[in-house]
Simulated assay, not measured.
Amino acid sequence: MIEAQAVTVRAGRRVLLDDVSFTAQTGAVTGIVGPNGSGKTTLLRALVRAAPLSSGRIVLDGDDLRIRPRRWIARHVAEVGQRSEPDPSLRVVDEVSLGGLAEHGVLRSGGAAFDDRVADALDAVELSHRAFDRLSTLSGGELQRVALARALAQGASHVLLDEPTNHLDIRHRLEIVALLRRIAPTVLIVLHDLDLAAEVCDHVVVLHRGRVAGAGRPAELFRPPLLDAVYDVTTHAHPGPDGRARLSFSLPSPLPLSSSHEKESA
């Protein structure tokens, strides 16, 4: 379980996160959504002490991260960023094996059991056939799948994912979504696609200008009043074939020209 308790992050005079509190429960997928610049990536960085807190605290399964060394955090939390920029000279299997660094402390396989974990991770993202290829030969989507395989191989109890389906085609996007509940007991995922968030997340936190605008189950939260205010759009909900609402959006209707003239003259 990950708890953010009144977390505030500042960069100079600018407030990036303002009194953010939420809980990501063990055994669930928790989504973080919100418009660009709302603080989603900053929040993920704060959760692993990569962004220093101005106030508040992060608690991981009852442990306050302020008093835990970074090595301890690395053993318990795996991260997958939006863009993977590993050493292009490494082979795929070498990069995935780095998932064991936090566990074993040195660049070695960690034994047969860990080697099996690496093989299983590569198989899960369908990259076994490229295990001994250089990373420089992979596409952006394949590099993203390597990053996910590394998180799987790490075996951490908590995984933070920042837009993990970026650069992926439809098939591999669906496969990654299916993997979410296998990656770790506690999964926290940043998503822009609200339909995808509604499909894969048990709980969502909506950020707006660095604050929590709402939190709860997607079906209860993704409704026009909240989404219209946060995204500055007009939200339309349509019934899907599975009975779940599908969302579409349009720009808010502008004021009639005559009305705007009347306001200016007034």
Score class of each variant (00 low, 15 high):
Ala4Gly: 10
Ala6Phe: 01
Arg10His: 08
Arg10Tyr: 00
Arg13Thr: 12
Arg14Ile: 01
Val20Gly: 06
Thr23Met: 05
Thr23Phe: 01
Thr23Trp: 02
Thr30Ile: 05
Ile32Gln: 03
Ile32Asn: 00
Val33Phe: 12
Gly34Ser: 07
Pro35Asn: 07
Gly37Ala: 08
Gly39Cys: 08
Thr41Gln: 02
Thr41Leu: 05
Thr42Ser: 10
Leu44Gln: 10
Val48Thr: 15
Arg49Thr: 11
Arg49Glu: 02
Ala50Phe: 15
Pro52Lys: 06
Gly56Asp: 00
Ile58Arg: 03
Ile58Met: 14
Val59Arg: 03
Leu60His: 13
Asp61Arg: 13
Gly62Phe: 10
Asp63Gln: 14
Arg66Gln: 10
Arg68Val: 01
Pro69Gly: 09
Arg70Ile: 11
Arg70Phe: 03
Trp72Gly: 07
Ile73Trp: 08
Ala78Tyr: 00
Ala78Glu: 01
Val80Asp: 11
Val80Glu: 09
Gly81Gln: 06
Gln82Gly: 08
Pro88Trp: 05
Val93Glu: 11
Leu98Glu: 12
Leu98Trp: 09
Gly100Phe: 00
Leu101Ser: 00
Ala102Lys: 07
Glu103Pro: 00
Leu107Asn: 06
Leu107Cys: 04
Arg108Gly: 10
Arg108Thr: 11
Ser109Arg: 14
Gly110Ser: 03
Ala112Glu: 14
Arg117Ile: 00
Val118Trp: 04
Val118Phe: 06
Val118Tyr: 12
Val118Arg: 01
Ala119Glu: 11
Val125Ser: 04
Ser128Leu: 14
Ser128Ile: 07
Arg130Phe: 05
Arg134Glu: 06
Arg134Trp: 07
Leu135Pro: 02
Ser136Val: 01
Thr137Asn: 02
Leu138Pro: 13
Ser139Cys: 10
Gly140Leu: 06
Leu143Ser: 04
Gln144Trp: 02
Ala149Ile: 09
Ala151Arg: 13
Leu152Ile: 15
Ala153Arg: 09
Gln154Pro: 08
Gly155His: 06
Val159Ala: 11
Leu160Gln: 05
Glu163Phe: 11
Glu163Ile: 04
Glu163Lys: 01
Thr165Met: 05
Asn166Val: 01
Asn166Ser: 15
His167Ile: 02
His167Val: 01
Leu174Gln: 14
Leu174Ser: 07
Arg181Pro: 06
Arg182Gln: 08
Ile183Ala: 07
Val187Met: 03
His192Trp: 11
His192Tyr: 08
Leu194Gln: 04
Ala198Asp: 15
Ala198Leu: 05
Val205Gln: 09
Val205Thr: 02
Leu207His: 10
Leu207Val: 02
His208Arg: 12
His208Lys: 11
Gly210Ala: 04
Arg211Asn: 08
Arg211Cys: 13
Arg211Val: 09
Gly214Leu: 02
Pro218Leu: 10
Pro218Gly: 05
Pro218Val: 07
Ala219His: 03
Glu220Gln: 13
Pro225Ala: 10
Leu227Arg: 13
Asp228Trp: 12
Asp228Met: 11
Ala229Tyr: 02
Val230Trp: 13
Thr234Ser: 12
Thr234Met: 04
His236Tyr: 10
His238Ala: 05
Pro239Trp: 13
Asp242Arg: 09
Arg244Tyr: 10
Ala245Pro: 05
Arg246Thr: 13
Ser248His: 09
Ser248Asn: 04
Ser250Ile: 01
Ser253Thr: 15
His261Met: 14
His261Ala: 14
Ala266Tyr: 06
